[in-house]
Write a protein that binds this DNA or RNA. Sequence first.
DNA 1: TACTATAATGTAAGCGCTTACATTTGTCAA
DNA 2: TTGACAAATGTAAGCGCTTACATTATAGTA
Lengths: 341, 341
Amino acid sequence: MNDKKNINIYDIAKISGVSTATVSRVMNNSPKVTEKTKAKVMAAIEQCGYTPNIFAQGLGLNSMHTIGILVPSIADLYMSNAVAHIEDILHNAGYDCILHCSGYSAKQKETHIQLLLNKKIDALILVGSTYAGSEDTTHNTDYIKQAAKRVPVFIINGLVNGDNIYCTASNDYQAAYDVTSALIRDGREQILFLTDSKSYSANQKKNGYLDALRNEGKTLDESKIIHTVNSVYTVKDMLTENEQLSFDSIFATDDAMAIGAIKYAISKNLHMPNDLAIVGYNNSTLCVCSEPELSSVDNKIEQVCQDTCNRLIEILQGNTDIPNQSIINCSLIQRGTTNFE
Amino acid sequence: MNDKKNINIYDIAKISGVSTATVSRVMNNSPKVTEKTKAKVMAAIEQCGYTPNIFAQGLGLNSMHTIGILVPSIADLYMSNAVAHIEDILHNAGYDCILHCSGYSAKQKETHIQLLLNKKIDALILVGSTYAGSEDTTHNTDYIKQAAKRVPVFIINGLVNGDNIYCTASNDYQAAYDVTSALIRDGREQILFLTDSKSYSANQKKNGYLDALRNEGKTLDESKIIHTVNSVYTVKDMLTENEQLSFDSIFATDDAMAIGAIKYAISKNLHMPNDLAIVGYNNSTLCVCSEPELSSVDNKIEQVCQDTCNRLIEILQGNTDIPNQSIINCSLIQRGTTNFE
DNA sequence: TACTATAATGTAAGCGCTTACATTTGTCAA
DNA sequence: TTGACAAATGTAAGCGCTTACATTATAGTA
């Protein structure tokens, strides 16, 4: 199989009648090569269809122009979108991406980061769901800090303080605050808050929700905060079965949950947005599938990815004065399930 | 940055008092090492946190246990799901995945395949949208055959004949045939066929649709075949604007298009499935977002991926008698937009 | 005990590139 | 024409592994 001898730099050197060093210089666009010899070498390269052996290259340079990307799950709509953007941007900048899907636990992430580091990646991008916040005392980010000793680490929608760690996040706190305020000013008294995880983002959203209630002088009712699974039917069933629950609006931290709420409303003949206002999160394709369509927070995934990649590229180019944190503001896209001014 | 000297196999050899060959053997679980020396070496490895340099390893082996995956777009629901499964399966089998998103053109794919090959991948997986069929005369698959000379190529939902090329596809012809037949037996006279691409799968679906019409003795009306974009609103608008179009059922080759059809029906106050039956394709999350929910063909993405990976692993293990083609049957998931027996 | 057969370990040659340093070639001024 | 200096090119030493082959230790047998 692999016994067919690939042509190497020595072959090219011999054919074009120069040394391997010169061939190498041509390959790497070194300025110190005559146009004439360069042409000779190029001709030989063309003729043989030569491509340098990446391993040998890496052995010398100890870098492969490769970025590791770790996501909990690529099947998740938000993350697949993020990866699509990241891959595109980085590829255009001359980097390759190695993708790993780890699952959500810190343990799994740690393992995968190790694997990624073994691949001699030049930088590491962690997408989403970095646990944080005082509630989660068991959480530790040591493995991330450890990784940052080897390569710069970029976290999307998470927050870890440390050397060589760069975070970019959508401003989920502000978005949640604004949505909640808007609901209150719209006259809503009982806002159900549906959340599906303890990720950094989820936490930010919850804090925004709580602070808005507080600042608008509302009393906080813990029973209005519901932890559930990010699935249409789980939410619909949950709402149907919990008859004692009372609410005039629902703010869900993901569109799928919000769609579940819409289906519940339809089944109960509740009119939206009058009887029930609903706001989702992520502004995904799902939003336009229902009738009425779902109002949702656009969390600017593309901008977040762009920002992350920009900084990554800068840093890999040696630029050192890059801020460690960056925040992108979101915006609410109103559709049929709300009716704010 | 990279000047921190990594510990290497020589260090471990020295510390544990053996030769590098023995260390290497321990690393690779060679059977011919005494438990005692193995323990010594392992201790040194643990102590130093040694991990082998992947480049040096690759240089010797000319393999990196890495599989290249090429998808046109990871933002596509179907493809991100496929990648999720593939990544999971292959990772459990000890392989790493390099992901490239190429876009849909053959030109782009060719470029990306080249890049992937340069990375010394052990095999290449191409997901979807391989053009095929007599209509597309400009199509050529030479670049795929070329790639197959270097590594085994696995195509998901595409068909290319050639040495070292292995195809796995869902049986889209049969599924489309069955759906169309079912619609006819359900009493539908005018079945609109919505399609968004000229991919191999799309072509299979169309053929299934056409053959079913033919076999059920229906006359074929070319105007019922509509090429459009896979977007909810494009389809809804298209249907709304084309008032001369007449139909009593719609078969869309992707769920998003079918959802567009549902929205059109709702806007026209058409009752589903009585006034209008609708069938989508892919059985994606979108199906349960609408009301009524969308009947859709489950094209068994997980099985297709599993089958592909199984064969890939077999082949990389040296097994040679692997069939070149494999087909997975689909099944229709009925929901609110159809009412077949 | 001496001699084999075998298992365990060691030696050293590659793998194909990059690059510091050495050498050669070319240019220009005196 | 020669010498000085710069530019272009060449030489060869790594980079850290794997593995064929050589060597040594171990066990088994007569």
